[in-house]
Amino acid sequence: MNDQEIIEQIKKGDESAIDFLYKKNYRMMVKLILKNSGTEDEAKDIYQDALVVLWQKARNPEFVLSSKISTYLYSVCLNLWRKELERKGRHTSSEGMDYGENMPYDEKERIHIVQKCINELGDACKQILIYYYYDKLSMAEIAEKMGFANADTAKTKKYKCKQELDKKIKTQYTPSDFLD
């Protein structure tokens, strides 16, 4: 697979492309962090975050990779590590990375509420919603990944799962909790 094919696989939600990239560039990325005062665990964390960034960016239909994937990942790792060092410099502690640290408290709280409700869903429901809302897969792609008969089945399941999630959230919290 060349870089473009890998991106296509990622767009289709194929996690094996991430496995492949992770193994392929591991030493390069880890070495970068190790040479800049990081540990291997920190390096792993940063590198995994960089791959998550790539996964997320590739979801955007307008995403165009203007360099090699390895160059892109290298740059994201550098950036994330720079931010982590800045954070360490500010807090002089080695807590885990928190990319939401600039997020207002009430917004964090809201997401925490929803996160709890998502965790209460069954695995299949959770996965369908992730595929739809985050991986932005089509109903046909979701049907294929989940082993459903067709796109219509996937659409119905997604609808029911979303209803279940909304119900969980709204029985515990009022819509006004989500107002600024």
């Binding site: 791959l51 998550v52 996160q115 985050y134």
Partner: peptide, 14 residues
């Protein structure tokens, strides 16, 4: 918030 939380869940999965 649902979309963001699902994104967080996906990141953790990956």
């Amino acid at each position: 918030s649902v979309v963001t939380a699902l994104g967080n869940t996906r990141s953790m999965q990956l």
